[in-house]
């Protein structure tokens, strides 16, 4: 029984990725994540655990990210083939610097973070932020805040914005009025520590006409050009993993907990559905997981050009390559 299943699976893999070869000749590759192991990456870990990459012809290793690493640099160096990088913003800046990476998919279709103030605090509207203290990650989130303020004609100098550290404790303690929070991580922490979402006033970028899709899937450019089948196989297996994690979140959480057994399970359980929501939002609703929405990308790009973060427009068609994804039947990509 087992043997037959394996045979079938191998057959399926052969059909699916004929150019990569058989189970005997797996393509070795690594995936560098953007952060430490957590259910933000559950689909990748589950795909690995269930052997989806292997079945697709890849011998994949998943390497966690961390505070001292830039996924773009590691993938650009060729030491790693795939990466979950910061977001569309970091792809822009990497391409601007000439780093040989391409974006082959987008995980979070909408801006994955919001800005939060306390519901009973002084900040009820964006206008109220004037003269107040706000923190944001200076890896890109601060630009989104600048953009939101600009959309209401507020100069960024009017708000006291400083770099946000890892902890949200200063906000909880009232030392800071506005804090950046990802839907899947900090917001859960805030809800838990303040006692519910109704204790918070949220400012969502999309409400101010800004969308920055993040958690972009990138590949080393030379590797992708030489091994299009491997890129396709990677995306196909990752989609399978994420669909499995969506179907059985418990398995998704478990796959991560096996890698990092000391992290808090309840927190991870709360994180996964939020990540899935961000993944299925926007263009993904019609075009499936990892869809690269050219409109959203262009919008984000123009926003960063307007913010003068990018000195000049970059070649988006070269940087964002949907062809690997489009080679996979749409039905397979739909979550």
């Amino acid at each position: 029984m087992m043997q037959r299943r394996t045979l079938l699976a191998t057959g399926a893999a052969l059909l699916a990725a004929p150019r990569i070869g058989t189970a005997q000749a797996l393509t070795k590759a690594t995936l560098r994540l953007k952060w430490l192991p957590q259910t933000q990456f559950a689909g990748f870990y589950l795909a690995l655990e269930r052997g989806y990459y292997r079945e697709a012809g890849l011998d994949l290793t998943i390497n966690p990210g961390g505070p001292n690493l830039l996924t773009e640099n590691l993938v650009a160096s060729g030491g790693e083939q795939f990466g979950v990088s910061g977001g569309t913003d970091s792809v822009f800046s990497a391409r601007e610097k000439g780093l040989p990476i391409v974006c082959v998919g987008v995980t979070h279709q909408v801006t994955p973070f919001v800005f939060a103030a306390k519901a009973d605090g002084a900040v009820k509207t964006l206008e109220d932020m004037r003269g107040r203290k706000a923190t944001a990650w200076f890896t890109g989130a601060h630009l989104v805040l600048y953009g939101m303020l600009a959309s209401r004609g507020i100069a960024k100098e009017a708000v006291n914005i400083s770099p946000q550290q890892v902890s949200v404790t200063p906000f909880v303690n009232g030392e800071v009025d506005v804090v950046a929070a990802t839907w899947y991580n900090e917001l859960n922490v805030l809800k838990a520590r303040l006692g519910g979402v109704d204790k918070l006033k949220l400012f969502v970028a999309e409400d101010y006409g800004i969308t920055v899709p993040r958690d972009t899937v990138i590949a080393n450019e030379a590797f992708a050009t030489a091994n299009p089948g491997a890129v396709q196989a990677f995306l196909r297996a990752s989609i399978r993993g994420w669909k499995a994690a969506a179907a059985t979140p418990v398995a998704g959480v478990e796959a991560v907990m096996k890698i990092a057994p000391t992290i808090d399970r309840a927190h991870q359980e709360a994180m996964l559905p939020e990540c899935l929501r961000l993944m299925k939002a926007g263009a993904a609703a019609q075009q499936g997981l990892f869809a690269i929405d050219p409109v959203a990308v262009k919008k984000a790009h123009d926003f960063f050009v307007a913010q003068k973060v990018l000195a000049a427009p970059i070649d988006l068609a070269a940087a964002y390559q949907g062809k690997y994804l489009e080679a996979i039947p749409l039905a397979e990509r739909m979550a």
Binding site: L36, P37, I62, P64, P67, L69, T262
Partner: peptide, 19 residues
């Protein structure tokens, strides 16, 4: 601290950033 999956350092980092 540079992207390891296992080890005391990896644990330390995960605990640090998850408070």
């Amino acid at each position: 601290w540079f992207g390891a999956s296992i080890g005391v350092g990896a644990m330390l980092l995960a605990a640090l950033f998850n408070e």
